[in-house]
Design a protein around this nucleic acid. Structure first.
Lengths: 234, 234
DNA sequence: CCAAAAGTGTTATGCTTACACCCATGT
DNA sequence: ACATGGGTGTAAGCATAACACTTTTGG
């Protein structure tokens, strides 16, 4: 019924692709590089490459990403869908596992000449099946901003609530109230007050408290939206 | 920077694995088969097989599943993580893409001799990395029962609220109130009243209304738990 | 008439949004 | 003083959980 895979036959090349997102200039932007060769010459593509024999997908993704950006600036990396349509690459059969990578808004990594940041709501034509992958990554980010602490991966080490409000607003695609954002994140105990203060704009105004996220690893903070377990009687 | 994959080198076998879950005898159970050969002889494994050259992962998964159960009884199939640890299979390098498959509680598919249903909360020793995959699948199911209409995939075509309560309770792992389950699902307009009635147990009691799910495709019903867009003024 | 199961009415609670208002700083 | 942005107080809305109570059947 189950046979040991025959490593000669039936195998296909396996690639990795990263949807690297960052809030830059107040907009959610994705890292793309412009293809010089066919297929899809001139179109923009997600950074990625081929999986080697002795590495995991995650290791491979970080390795290929290192050619595009300083990997230390990638604050979060998680696996998305693996694409397998035999026709997705017209040249040869190739599977690709997509990842969501996030970069804090204060980072400005050096990128190669062919590589640029593009606002996600104003994308150029993309190669292969990269556009649905990119949009799915954005949906994943938007969902997780609501029920996890994933904001840490988009925010600088320390920040004011106003700055965080702008980051959440750009990522979610709708205005966010600083008042309510602060309440939600403080109630969930995701933010720590650093005790320091800083000014936001040029004009006057009360100086803002500087916060930081208590954890820099993904945590689910609102698991049971409904159908919670019964409260323990007491 | 990006090279066309060399189909000769660096490729690994690619497999698919299914975590097939069903509520049977009031418990959430998974379909497993017992390995006869090394490695992991005697241990239980998730059904699956090798990806062929001309099929997608989803097609391959359904094809391999057809050897174990009647595929028409699989009411939902979705992709989970792709596992890639080079040492996950001691015999050879093999990637595996895991799927979550769901079977309605009234189905009783014929299964091969080496294959059996096992309660998820009382698992035998599993081969390879199948145990974390299985447990992750259960977590995915539990999450999606709360914020999607995924109950349709575990429930029979028509059912009483009591039957649905038992199904949700088994899948979620905690008691569910029929009263509140009905309110939640009706408010979200996921259930349709068939107009028919049926008895539940042997004893007396008022006959229960028969419901059905309005849609048999996955829909997200409670997308924004928090940080919703502002209500349009009016 | 009574037990059993289904279903509805009602209340309490908690989280979120919305908005008014006070606070602290620069000019 | 006054403009500007930061932060808190407070009320309203909404979904859910909890539970009492009514309804409908079989024995």
């Amino acid at each position: 019924v189950y046979t040991v895979p025959d490593s000669q036959a039936k195998t296909a090349a396996h690639g990795v692709l990263a949807v690297v997102l960052q809030v830059r200039e107040g907009r959610l932007q994705a890292l793309l590089w412009q293809r010089a060769l066919e297929p899809y010459a001139g179109a923009w593509a997600l950074p990625g490459g081929v999986l080697e024999a002795d590495e995991t997908l995650e290791e491979s993704m970080l390795r290929h990403l290192a050619e595009k950006v300083d990997v230390r600036q990638v604050s979060h990396l998680e696996q998305l869908e693996t694409r397998s349509d035999p026709g997705r690459n017209p040249e040869c059969r190739e599977l690709a596992t997509a990842f969501l990578g996030l970069v804090p808004s204060d980072a400005d990594p050096a990128v190669p000449d062919d590589t640029r940041w593009h606002p996600v709501d104003d994308l150029p034509p993309l190669a292969f099946d990269h556009e649905p992958i990119l949009l799915a990554a954005r949906e994943r980010l938007r969902g997780k901003l609501s029920y996890t602490n994933l904001g840490f991966a988009l925010a600088p080490e320390t920040f004011t609530i106003s700055e965080l409000r702008d980051i959440y607003g750009a990522a979610l695609g709708h205005p966010v109230s600083a008042t309510n954002l602060q309440r939600v994140l403080l109630r969930r105990m995701l933010l720590e007050d650093t005790g320091e203060q800083r000014h936001y704009g040029r004009g006057g105004g009360r100086p803002a408290a500087l916060y930081r996220f208590g954890s820099n690893r993904l945590e689910i903070t609102d698991q049971f939206a409904v159908l919670r377990p019964p409260t323990i009687a007491g």
